[in-house]
Simulated assay, not measured.
Amino acid sequence: MARVLINFAHPALEKSRVHTQLLRVIKNVPGITFNDLYEQYPDLDINVAREQKLLVEHDIILMQHPFYWYSAPAIVKQWIDLVLEHGWAYGHTGKALQGKYFGNIISAGGSEKSYHPDGHHGHTVHEFLLPFSQTAKLCNMQYVAPYVIYGVHRQDTSDIKDDAAVLGQILERLSDKKFELAPLPGLDYLNQILQLPGQTL
């Protein structure tokens, strides 16, 4: 059974229709460890030892956050800077995270069409997430396809609940002892695991 850690970061959760719904589902999925970074560290004073212990104890690490300015809220960068230490997460002796899986759960205001070389943003979400995939590589982890909710500003409540339900199914699949993790890096989006042949709950 894969142990799944979600590192969540939203500086204004009370204003987020999407992540409020996602959290309601996530917190009801058995076996998921939910780590709210802003709740834990409102002053950005991150407990490195605590965070490293959580990473060691889990197989899949997912960074959940809104897609702010083509990246993540400030605390995510702070977390990466402090927690993924040289000699521990990377470097000649940095093997603590070797073999683990690392990815993103993000919400984006723009449509999927807008995140295209010919679209409004000029690049795909996958290209904007390159710092995360390269971080995974440097730390000897496998980067997994992101779960992306596009066009959140135009979604109604039923759309958001549908996206939250899909994420719940994905997390159940990831944490199921029969699920094979090896195909994850080859997917375009994390929700594609629900269509993988031979993968049943």
Results as ranks from 00 to 15, higher is better:
156 D>G: 13
62 L>R: 10
123 H>C: 06
100 K>L: 07
135 T>A: 09
197 P>V: 08
44 L>T: 12
161 K>I: 01
183 P>Y: 02
182 A>Q: 10
162 D>L: 04
94 G>S: 11
144 V>D: 02
100 K>S: 04
122 G>D: 01
127 E>L: 07
76 V>G: 09
87 G>L: 04
107 S>T: 15
120 H>I: 08
189 Y>R: 05
1 M>L: 12
18 V>D: 07
153 H>L: 09
26 I>V: 15
110 G>C: 00
30 P>L: 11
112 E>T: 02
115 Y>R: 15
149 I>K: 01
95 K>V: 06
151 G>E: 07
164 A>G: 09
25 V>Y: 02
158 S>Y: 01
145 A>H: 01
24 R>K: 14
45 D>A: 15
125 V>H: 01
88 W>C: 11
92 H>D: 11
124 T>Y: 14
15 K>T: 10
108 A>D: 02
51 E>Q: 03
19 H>Q: 14
95 K>E: 06
89 A>C: 07
35 N>L: 10
18 V>I: 11
54 L>P: 09
45 D>W: 02
88 W>P: 09
185 P>W: 10
107 S>L: 00
132 F>E: 08
171 L>R: 05
113 K>N: 08
179 F>E: 12
6 I>L: 12
16 S>E: 08
114 S>D: 00
171 L>I: 03
79 W>C: 07
154 R>P: 01
190 L>R: 11
125 V>A: 00
12 A>M: 14
121 H>K: 02
98 Q>C: 10
54 L>R: 14
127 E>Q: 12
92 H>C: 08
164 A>M: 04
148 V>A: 09
173 R>F: 09
50 R>L: 13
29 V>W: 11
167 L>A: 01
90 Y>F: 13
172 E>K: 15
5 L>C: 08
172 E>F: 10
39 E>Q: 03
140 N>P: 01
181 L>I: 04
65 H>W: 01
88 W>G: 05
144 V>H: 05
109 G>C: 04
112 E>K: 15
193 I>L: 15
123 H>G: 02
194 L>F: 05
85 E>A: 07
176 D>C: 13
98 Q>E: 13
60 I>M: 05
196 L>N: 12
2 A>N: 14
142 Q>V: 03
10 H>I: 09
13 L>Q: 13
148 V>P: 05
74 A>M: 11
20 T>G: 15
24 R>C: 02
40 Q>W: 12
113 K>D: 11
122 G>K: 14
176 D>G: 05
7 N>C: 14
159 D>T: 00
111 S>K: 13
125 V>M: 03
180 E>D: 15
152 V>N: 00
57 E>T: 10
7 N>D: 10
32 I>T: 07
117 P>S: 15
130 L>F: 13
164 A>P: 07
164 A>D: 08
73 P>W: 00
77 K>N: 11
110 G>Q: 00
180 E>G: 08
35 N>M: 07
109 G>P: 02
144 V>C: 00
114 S>C: 04
134 Q>T: 11
159 D>F: 02
19 H>M: 09
127 E>V: 06
148 V>H: 02
